[in-house]
């Protein structure tokens, strides 16, 4: 294919990716070093109220934003270097906590709290997703043919459902006097309040993620199980391998590329976890890195969005993505080189 034809085919897609992915990335990088603020001016204001014999007057110095001729607030953009980063990372509080070796204080800072949770979340859900997915695939493969269709249908539901709603449907089972909480309370004879307990909420968020992603792992492992070499399995039986040994030494090595694939996809997706925070309303207890950026972007009570801090936290999130992808990308590059 000539380069010109290739460019015609790929052009629109590359244009969109440049305009809406590459360009915003550069904009975020630039924004993270700048702060845009309204210009303020100080003004003396004398307010008088009626009093007996004479008025009581007070003079105050007020800070008010400067308006231009259209009545809009004038803003200036200042180059602030790394101060937005320092702000997101916790600045003074962080260095003080670090010098005291006070990890509790570090984890009270939003960014470190989000980082801690995101990493724990990603690393704990990964083996659960792989294990549960493989178990379901083996069990379905073992089931009678007639029920496989309906079983796959039911299993796909948690995967296909809107993430926020999936999280909500689990939240409604547990929060308040949810039915499962009532059962647990009756079983252990205690009083539980799930929504107020950070660790319980953290567990529910992980449970939701495993419930949501396990079907994806299941479908891929199930497809992989169909291509296991039957001859190898039979030779293993003749050699006297037990069921467990056959699984361990024949089936799992065969599925290894799929395990790597699911691991990569899951690491990418769990690292940008976000919907859990919305679904479980865990803003005050547990937040993720992506939620941190989202939170800075949300307008506050005065309608201002902290674009600069959002950009800084977005760039810090990017660092994690690069670390995550470094190993697989190097492998792909080696494969391509030949």
């Amino acid at each position: 294919m000539k380069f010109k034809t290739f460019a015609m085919f790929v052009g629109p897609s590359v244009f969109l990716m440049l305009l809406f992915i590459a360009f915003p990335l550069v904009a975020v990088l630039v924004n993270s070093f700048q702060v845009t603020q309204p210009v303020f001016t100080t003004q003396e204001v004398e307010t008088c109220s009626a009093g007996f014999l004479q008025q009581t007057c007070t003079t105050e110095v007020k800070t008010i934003p400067v308006l231009d001729e259209n009545g809009e607030i004038i803003t200036t953009t200042k180059w602030v270097g790394f101060s937005s980063y320092a702000n997101v990372l916790g600045g003074e509080r962080f260095t003080r906590a670090l010098s005291n070796f006070d990890f509790g204080a570090i984890l009270a800072i939003d960014f470190w709290k989000a980082l801690r949770f995101t990493l724990t979340f990603t690393l704990i859900t990964l083996p659960c997703v792989l294990g549960l997915g493989l178990a379901i695939a083996i069990v379905v493969n073992n089931a009678t043919r007639a029920i496989k269709g309906p079983v796959i249908f039911l299993s796909l539901l948690p995967f296909i459902i809107t993430p926020v709603i999936g999280a909500l449907s689990i939240r409604w089972l547990f929060y308040g006097d949810g039915i499962v909480t009532v059962w647990l309370e009756a079983w252990f004879n205690t009083d539980l309040s799930i929504a107020a307990n950070g660790w319980a909420v953290e567990f529910l968020m992980m449970f939701y993620r495993v419930w949501h992603v396990a079907p994806f792992a299941f479908v891929i492992f199930y497809a992989g199980l169909q291509t296991v070499n039957q001859d190898t399995l039979e030779s293993a039986i003749i050699d006297g391998a037990s069921r467990w040994e056959r699984l361990r030494y024949v089936v799992i090595p065969h599925l290894m590329p799929l395990i790597v694939f699911i691991t990569l996809i899951h690491l990418m997706d769990a690292y940008r976890a976000f919907e859990e925070v919305i679904g479980f309303s865990s803003e005050s207890l547990r937040i993720t890195l992506q939620y941190l950026t989202y939170d800075y972007l949300q307008p506050d009570d005065a309608g201002n969005r902290q674009i600069s801090s959002a950009s800084a936290s977005a760039m810090l999130t990017m660092v994690g993505v690069i670390v995550l992808l470094a190993a697989p990308l190097r492998r792909t590059w080696r494969d391509h080189r030949g």
Binding site: I21, L25, T36, R272, T293, I307, A314, L325
Partner: peptide
Amino acid sequence: FAFWILIIALIFRALPPSVLVAGYLPV
């Protein structure tokens, strides 16, 4: 060139959308 487009697309695939939205909002 095609290989590089695919690799860069893979990196873009891993980007959290909030990173990009931080770039769109002010614009």
